[in-house]
Design a protein around this nucleic acid. Sequence first.
RNA 1: GGGGUGGUAGUUAAGUAGGUUAUAACGCCGGCCUGUCACGCCGGAGGCCGCGGGUUCGAGUCCCGUCCACCCCGCCA
Length: 607
Amino acid sequence: MASFLAKHNKTHSCGALRKSDEGATVVLTGWIDNRRDHGGCVFVDLRDRAGVTQVVFDPQASADAHERAGRLRSEFCIGVAGKVLSRGDNINPRIATGDIEVVAHELEIFSPSETPPFPIEDRIDTNEAVRLKHRYLDLRRPALQRNLQVRSAATHSARQYLAECDFSEIETPFMVKYTPGGARNFVVPSRLSPGQFYALAESPQIYKQLLMVAGFERYYQIVRCFRDEDLRQDRQPEFTQIDIEMSFVEESGLQELVEGMIARVWNDVLGVDIPRPIRRMGYAEAMEKYGVDKPDLRLDLVLCDVTEACKGSGFRIFDTAIERGGIVKCMRVPEGDRLTRSMLDGLTDFAKPYGVKGVAFARIEEGGGWRAPFAKNFADRARESVNALAGAQPGDVLLFVADKPKTANTCMGAIRLHIGDKLGMIREDEWACLWITDPPLFERGDDGTLASAHHPFTAPREQDEGALESNPDSVRARAYDLVINGVEAGGGSIRIHDRALQERVFSALGIGDEEAEAKFGFLLEAFRYGPPPHGGIAFGLDRLAMLLSGAESLRDVIAFPKTQRGTDLMADAPTSLDERQLRELFIQLAPNLPGASGASGGTAPGS
RNA sequence: GGGGUGGUAGUUAAGUAGGUUAUAACGCCGGCCUGUCACGCCGGAGGCCGCGGGUUCGAGUCCCGUCCACCCCGCCA
């Protein structure tokens, strides 16, 4: 007897059939989403990647199909041949195919299913560990199907755009030389070079610059990157970048091109128009008004620096902070009566993780007076200056944090988002894109040493070059980040192609000739042979997919993500190696490690 | 490296003040049911209370340790 698939080709997806298809003979395949057995008729919701269609097994249409349908259970994989019938008035408005149903004449059970460990549906509250362990089932859920389809569409759209713009897609090595500084590298032992290790590329940065030297002029790659750093909701140890590098352009040319890509992707995937040019904002302004280098402009709350106004206010907490070189950061919240006393008191707890001791608040009364625990201790003149700076109106609440500049900004930036969220002030339907430009070229470590904020090949702004030696902290970089809804979607810079300038930057960083040679020798050598002026950018494809799909976690736009500890609960990775494999790699484990004795499997107690 | 939340049936949760046989919903199994679509009705099965130790006559509950997941700070473009 011929198999079902030999007799029938699938004719429609489970999301395709409409009223206009009434009377058609169709073949559907999919999984049992739900089954309702009425003894007489059996109803089945059949699900595939496109949607859900109701299939009816009526003994009068096919006794055989009806008899078999009695055996169907959740997640059985089946094929059905049948006829499309109108449901008349009995429609189901909750599904796209709700006007019709398919009366089955033939049923094939391709394979049965055990009862799944959790229901395959979107309003799911199952623990993420359980879902990750059975990821292939979690991925059957319509929401994840859609997220990954959105991601695929975005990838396709970006590729098409870049190809049209005459970019070449070129692959670069994953296994590269270990580069100190920046993100920690994953490491791969070399069997053929005993005792030596490759690093997994944290990005193709150096290679793409070499491709510019090689004359490819326009390069892109949709490429996996690896970073051995602690994970977050929006960070995975392996993630994907849309990596771009161009020769013979400056900031404006590159940004214009990239805006075209973002607009194209948003239009292709969501049908949304991103207005261009995208707004630009200096890094300094972003820090001043939003406390972060990736402001979410869907929210109108702004911060201001009231340090000067608070000098000599008489309020001890502020005075002490200022004396210690700190700043006082203020945020005005209009219609402050929406902030209850318990919310305001709760802000101190919210702020603590940022290293801040407290959050002060004052309610503005008619006439500009403050109702605040510390109002009596606050000089009138200072109060008036603060009111003016913040634009305070009666009924507002002013929030204050006094601390080291970085701490105060970070904390107030976080409070801004927190309050905006609590009060529902974030405009969820908006796409707020902006470029953050001219960040500092260097940053100070805790020990006061200078380090590259981006990477050491980032060019300084021309008008700041003179300060490289005299006042390096003031030097701004020719770098830019594209921020969408408060998410850093991408970032890049114009690179240094002038040898003398590169040496000055190295020397500001305290990197001597020998060290530069050891770390980046092959790049510097390449730069002796006529490097073109060039610059580039890299987008986090996972984050773009997150934005486009509305997913709350990066894990929801990655087919097989890792947990926060970097493990794969489904495949059970990483694992230990047995003694023989280790010997082949000339690796000896530290004696105090479980598994060092050569036991395989890495069985942890309790697992 | 640090802080927080959680872990009880397949899943999600409840579990009082330490005290009989550890609850509920959904799911699952069996039966009934021609129109359901969160189908309905009747019946049933299902537990290493994350793991290890301690206190106690007695621990899901109290104490110590540990593992796992998630969220955050540090870190990381």
